[in-house]
Design a binder for these strands. Structure first.
Lengths: 216, 216
DNA sequence: ACCTGAACACCGTTCAAGT
DNA sequence: ACCTGAACACCGTTCAAGT
C-alpha cells in the first residue's frame, strides 16, 4: 500500500469554493470542508484563511480578462472592450461579486488592465494628474455594474401608488439580466462619449488654445 | 418610586447603532447592547433583528436627500444635483455603506428620487422603454461611487515595477477623499453629457437623418 | 410592556495530537 | 508534510422567567 494519497491541493479547494459560492451564494469554511470531504482545519494547510481564498478567486477571475492590447486602435474602443470583458468575467459568477467587494483588491491582474488604460489615456492627451480620475470613474462604474449584476431580479419594487411614471417605465423596460446588460452598454457609451468630449474641448472655448494640432 | 423608566426606544437604538458604525465600522448586536447599557436580547423588543436596524438607518440616511424638485430647470442639472446629494448623504457615514450594500433596498425615500428622475427623462424625450436603462446607469454609478467612498485611502497599490505609467499617475493625482470627490464629478459630468448626446443625435451623422431639426 | 440570563446554532481560526 | 478533533472566541436569535 503506497503512501496515503494527498487529499487536498489549492486548485481543488478553489474549484470547490467557487462551486459552493455558485450554488449557495456563500463561502463558509465548514461548508467548503464538507464539500471537499475533509475537516475544516485541513484547509489552513493550503490557505492562510478565508480572505486568502477569496483573493485567489479574484485572481482566477481576473485571468479571464484580456488587458487592452495597445495595438494602436482607438482608445475608447479598447477601454470599452476591456470594461465589457471585466464585466463578463464577473457575470460568470455573480454570487462571487459581494465577496470580492467586501475586501480590498490586492490582485495584480486587474491592475495590469489599469496600467494599459493609463498608457492609452496619456497617449491621447489626458493630463497626468487626471489619469487616475478617469480610471476611478471607470472603476466606479464597473463596480456598480457588478453590484447591479449581483442584485436580485427586481431591483426596485415601487409598492406605493404615487410613483406612476417609474412604475410605467419599469413595466415597459426589459427585466432582469437583459435590463442589466442593456443598461451597462448605454451607460458605458455615455461615459466614453462624455470623457472623449473632455479630451478635445470645443475649438473656440477654454482660455489656452496652445495645443493646436497641425497635422491631419 | 415611580414605575421603572423606559430604557430603550427606536431612536436611541438607531443613534447608538450609527455612532457605533462610525466608530468601529461594524454593527453587532452585542456591541450595540453594550453601547446602550442593556442586554442584547432587549433590542429585539424594538426591532425584528439586525437587518431591520440597517434598513431603518437607510431610511434615515435617505431623508437627508432632497428629491429633484421638478421646477422646470434643466434635467441634467436636476439629476446632477440629486446624484451629488445622494453621494453626500452616503459620505456622511462611509462605514454604513457596506452594510447597506449587503441587503436589498426596500426603503421608499430613494425611490421617490427615481420617480422624479423618471418624470424628468420622459419630459425630455427619453423613450419610455429606455427610462429604466438610464436610471439603472445612474444607480450603478452612484453605487460604485459609494463603494469607492467606503474603500480605504489607497485603492490600488501597484507593488510591481512593471506598472510605471499607473504609478506615475497615482503619485501625480490627488489622494484619498479628494481623489474620490474629483473623480465623482468628472464621471458624473461625462455621464450626463453622454446621455444628453443620445437625446439629440449629431445633426449630420448616423445613417437615418429622418429626424432633422428644422428650427435653429 | 419591557428587560434579562441562559441557551442554541453557527461563524473563523488555533493547536496539540496523530500518521 | 498533511490531516484530524477538540477547543476557543464570537456571531445573531430565541425564549422562559422575572418585574
Amino acid at each position: 500500500m503506497q503512501r496515503r494519497k494527498r487529499l487536498l491541493d489549492t486548485e481543488a479547494i478553489l474549484d470547490a469554493a467557487l462551486a459552493g459560492i455558485d450554488a449557495t451564494g456563500r463561502l463558509t469554511m465548514a461548508g467548503l470542508a464538507a464539500r471537499l470531504g475533509v475537516s475544516a482545519s485541513s484547509i489552513y494547510h493550503h490557505f492562510s484563511g478565508r480572505t486568502a481564498i477569496v483573493e485567489a478567486l479574484r485572481e482566477r477571475m481576473a485571468t479571464a480578462i484580456d488587458p487592452p492590447p495597445l495595438d494602436g486602435s482607438d482608445w475608447g474602443e479598447q477601454v470599452g472592450r476591456w470594461m465589457r470583458g471585466y464585466r463578463r468575467a464577473l457575470a460568470a459568477h455573480p454570487a462571487l461579486i459581494p465577496l470580492l467587494n467586501e475586501q480590498t483588491m490586492t490582485a495584480g491582474s486587474v491592475l495590469l488592465g489599469y496600467e494599459r488604460i493609463a498608457v492609452l489615456l496619456r497617449g491621447n492627451g489626458v493630463p497626468l494628474r487626471e489619469v487616475v480620475l478617469w480610471i476611478s470613474v471607470l472603476d466606479c462604474y464597473a463596480l456598480g455594474a457588478a453590484l447591479d449584476l449581483a442584485a436580485p431580479d427586481e431591483v426596485w419594487r415601487p409598492e406605493r401608488d404615487d410613483l406612476p411614471t417609474l412604475g410605467d417605465a419599469i413595466t415597459a423596460a426589459p427585466r432582469g439580466r437583459e435590463r442589466a446588460d442593456e443598461a451597462f452598454d448605454v451607460g458605458l457609451d455615455a461615459l466614453l462619449t462624455g470623457l472623449r468630449g473632455r479630451l478635445t474641448p470645443p475649438l473656440a472655448a477654454g482660455p489656452p488654445a496652445r495645443r493646436a494640432a497641425p497635422g491631419r
